[in-house]
């Protein structure tokens, strides 16, 4: 079982959509996947057609005392997801959950091949905790000047991989920055995720992009990402 933490270098890089899409693509390839939302904004579940009003989630369940696992939802036979849950601001601060322990329990059950953690940008403590628990970290960036600056001044996890999202080949600036990163950023993934309306529509359509627009370039890019994960990030069972 591999645990991958997906994190944006800044807000709005499309991490949540990519997490949902990657979970779907991996499930299409025959893997058992669990996607966990660590962000209090609770947006991951909306990619899986969960009703907006439903308060179910791991934090809600933990607060109610029934245990974090009761917040889980099943999307299809190979894909489960764990929403954060709906909590008010005060309640949110008081939730404490030993995720290291939880993940160990999940590993021992041997049910899942992949666990994807959608790590929020605005909550640095929880983010650091999530990344430290994961086997691999995938940092999403856009090929723009802001991301380039942040790469040099932001504390970033060691041994993480970088993935360019929202790539528009028409933009000369994006091409140049990508070329620069291909030469200077060793852990950059050898492919990009393109800017495609299909990805934007996946949240609006409440489905992962591979299911909503299977013929789109985004879908193909995500399948490439899933295959790359299978080849490079799969850890052997102990």
């Amino acid at each position: 079982m591999s645990v991958i933490a997906l994190h944006g270098i800044r807000g709005g890089t499309g991490t949540t959509s990519v997490t949902a899409a990657l979970a779907w693509a991996l499930s299409l390839l025959g893997e058992k996947v669990l996607a966990i939302d660590f962000s209090a904004a609770n947006l991951l579940r909306l990619h899986f057609a969960m009703p907006y009003d439903s308060p179910r989630g791991w934090a809600t369940a933990e607060r109610a005392g029934s245990g974090w696992e009761h917040g889980a939802m099943r999307y299809n036979s190979r894909l489960d997801f764990l929403p954060f849950g709906q909590l008010s601001g005060a309640e949110e601060g008081s939730v404490s959950c030993d995720w290291q322990n939880n993940l160990t329990k999940l590993r021992n059950t041997n049910v899942y091949d992949w666990i994807l953690l959608d790590v929020p940008v605005g909550e640095p403590l929880r983010a650091a905790q999530a990344i430290s628990m994961a086997d691999h970290a995938l940092i999403l960036l856009q090929a723009d000047s802001q991301s380039h600056v942040r790469l040099h001044q932001q504390p970033l996890p060691v041994n993480c991989h970088y993935l360019v999202n929202q790539f528009a080949p028409v933009s000369q600036l994006q091409q140049d920055i990508l070329l620069l990163w291909q030469q200077t950023l060793p852990q950059l993934l050898p492919f990009t995720l393109h800017r495609d309306e299909a990805m934007a529509e996946s949240l609006a359509g409440k489905q992962p992009v591979g299911e909503l627009h299977p013929q789109s370039k985004s879908s193909q890019d995500i399948i490439t990402l899933a295959n790359w994960c299978l080849i490079n990030l799969r850890s052997m069972p102990k």
Binding site: V170, H194, R195, D196, E197, A198, A200, H213, Q215, S216, K217, S218, S219, Q220
Partner: peptide
């Protein structure tokens, strides 16, 4: 290859 329409969708 890929074809991108003006309205933003890109197709394989």
């Amino acid at each position: 290859a890929a074809l991108a329409r003006a309205e933003g969708h890109v197709y394989v």
